[in-house]
């Protein structure tokens, strides 16, 4: 399969990038960071943009910077492997490192960026296929058609958000910076996502995700990320659970649980926080977390494994992760 033809734009700074986005907005510009997800999708004709803007040359977005008193600022072009290799992240934000290390394979993490992983296109077995294949099923509402194969008769797209790092970042209450022609704004990461499969992000056509902030208040949480996949490497998550917990003595002082790979957006399980704060971790508490997480999960037939199993795994993973993330808690796994 060949790539569709396009014109390549290569900005050197954010201002140039915004200028390109503005200038070619009508024709359509597709931003490309690591390209690990985009290029295969372009070959499958899921995207045939007039312009591809390769932003890898924007040097200012490639750094991990610790800002004392505030936290950590990550450029959106920070390579996933750089996060994996960062001792600071490993020490202070372990859940992020754990999640990043499960993304694809080592080679792909050398190309893939954190920003790219957050802006990852939603995925569905009926969508991530070649043009020829999609013709055979009459296309779908996400691309070229008017039919949904996972919710027959439905008008909404249920393609699944399949990034790993977002679940961890939600647990860390990360914020993001979006640059637009009007200036830069900072919003909670959770507000980036719409939970609509074919319109996944609140990111305008002339905007770019530029930075990710990890608040200092979230440093030092113990964390666990668990990912459901059939292979030990390469695969996208079929369900993912991130847990970050802080304790005072035996008592849970703060707890955050987020899930990914089962809804059109990564989701914080807010009830889990209420259920855990002020309690000790025990088997019952862990089970409650599992139940609450499974309630947020809405898996459908978007992947090889059945929705029923993936939902059950959200429950089991949340339960197991809650225990594992609480060092003195009962050892349910290992």
């Amino acid at each position: 399969m060949s790539l569709p033809s396009f014109k390549l734009l290569r900005p050197r700074n954010v201002e140039d990038a915004l200028g390109f986005l503005h200038r070619y907005e009508k024709e359509g510009v597709q931003i490309c960071a690591g390209g690990t997800d985009l290029l295969p999708s372009m070959k499958q004709r899921l995207f045939s943009p007039a312009y591809v803007m390769d932003i890898r040359g924007i040097e200012e977005l490639t750094h991990i910077r610790v800002v004392p008193g505030l936290g950590v600022e990550l450029g959106s072009l920070v390579k996933l492997s750089a996060i994996e290799d960062s001792g600071f992240i490993a020490t202070h934000y372990p859940v992020l490192r754990e999640a990043v290390m499960t993304v694809a394979s080592p080679i792909l993490r050398n190309m893939g960026t954190l920003g790219g992983n957050l802006c990852l296109d939603t995925r569905c077995l009926w969508y991530n296929q070649s043009l020829q294949w999609r013709k055979s099923c009459g296309y779908c509402i996400k691309k070229d058609g008017d039919l949904c194969h996972v919710a027959p008769g439905g008008k909404v797209c249920w393609a699944v958000f399949s990034g790993d790092s977002a679940a961890a970042l939600l647990c860390l209450h990360a914020e993001i910076e979006i640059a637009s022609p009007k200036g830069r704004r900072r919003i909670p990461l959770a507000d980036l996502y719409t939970n609509i499969g074919d319109d996944r992000m609140r990111l305008g056509k002339s905007e770019i995700l530029t930075r990710i902030f990890l608040p200092e208040a979230s440093a030092g949480y113990s964390g666990v990320y668990r990912k459901l996949r059939l292979r030990g490497s390469i695969d996208y998550p079929l369900a993912g659970v991130a847990v970050a917990i802080r304790k005072k003595g035996k008592i849970i002082d703060d707890a955050r649980v987020a899930i990914t790979g089962v809804n059109p957006a990564p989701r914080l399980v807010k009830d889990a926080t209420h259920a855990l704060i002020g309690r000790e971790m025990n088997e019952h508490a862990a089970m409650v977390v599992g139940e609450l997480a499974a309630r947020v999960a809405k898996p459908l037939t978007t992947s090889l494994l059945t929705p029923e199993y993936r939902r059950e795994m959200i429950k089991v993973f949340a339960k197991q992760s809650a225990s594992r993330a609480t060092p003195s808690g009962p050892s349910i796994r290992d």
């Binding site: 077995l125 009926w126 013709k135 055979s136 099923c137 009459g138 008017d146 039919l147 949904c148 194969h149 996972v150 027959p152 008769g153 037939t301 090889l304 059945t306 929705p307």
Partner: peptide, 24 residues
């Protein structure tokens, strides 16, 4: 697989006896 290929006349033109046209 659990998805649905054909739904109420939408989708590819399969023969009316094709298993894809059984109710989802």
């Amino acid at each position: 697989h659990g998805g649905s290929l054909w739904f109420k006349g939408k989708g590819p033109q399969r023969h009316e006896m094709d298993p894809a046209r059984k109710p989802a």
